[in-house]
């Protein structure tokens, strides 16, 4: 217990120093000195519920787009494999990286999360539960989930979302990627508990 606490304090300190030294993306962000697993959960969910994540986790068959999360223009649909209809694939327009000329975002395996992982309209508790539910999350273990959240390139895109069609930078999640990764790991290591609210 004592060791754990010291560990946490040190890690937090390191993160704090790092984020101060490298003012990445979210300068306004300030990390709490003492992040409890609950706070880590808050932080993680503030990212997952951000439009950069939610837009591709719709509960229906329509991707969302933009800062206002409007239904994707042109009636674009999920399709059977979550990568578009048979001939209108996500990759008709979205490639493996952002396109600076068109403003079309891109990342490897660009597509929708499966419908079982549709988060729209769900509370953060329900989203977290779905995240841990092998019946919904594609039979993933907690370790797999942590890996997805912290390493997947499509998830990582949220912090490098490029510009939109008019050349305006897309909004990034409210905490930095490093802080998010840290929070996810901390939450998972602490038992991946989901609070009641």
């Amino acid at each position: 217990m004592k060791i754990n606490l010291t560990h946490t304090v040190w890690l937090s300190l390191i993160v704090l120093i790092m984020s101060a030294a490298v003012p990445i993306i979210q300068p306004s962000e300030h990390l709490p000195r003492l992040a409890t697993p609950h706070q880590a959960f808050d932080k993680m969910m503030s990212v997952l519920m951000h439009k950069r994540c939610m837009n591709c986790h719709p509960s229906d068959d329509r991707p969302r787009q933009g800062e206002d999360s409007h239904v994707h223009n042109f009636g674009v649909q999920r399709g059977k494999d979550n990568h578009g209809t048979l001939s209108l694939r996500c990759q008709t327009c979205h490639q493996s990286e952002n396109n600076p000329y068109s403003g079309v975002p891109g990342a490897p395996h660009w597509g929708l999360a499966p419908k079982s992982m549709g988060w729209q309209g769900l509370s953060r508790v329900a989203i977290a539960k779905a995240l841990l539910d092998p019946a919904k999350n594609g039979d993933r273990s907690l370790k797999d989930i942590v890996k997805h959240l912290t390493e997947d390139k499509l998830v990582a895109w949220a912090w490098n979302p490029g510009v939109d069609a008019s050349g305006k930078a897309r909004e990034t999640p409210p905490v930095s990627r490093q802080a998010f990764i840290k929070a996810v790991k901390q939450w998972a290591e602490a038992g991946a508990n989901i609070p009641e609210k």
Binding site: S87, Q95, E97, N99, S102, V104
Partner: peptide, 9 residues
């Protein structure tokens, strides 16, 4: 596959 070439590096 159909690709929109204006947005394809």
């Amino acid at each position: 596959g159909a690709v929109r070439s204006c947005s394809y590096a």
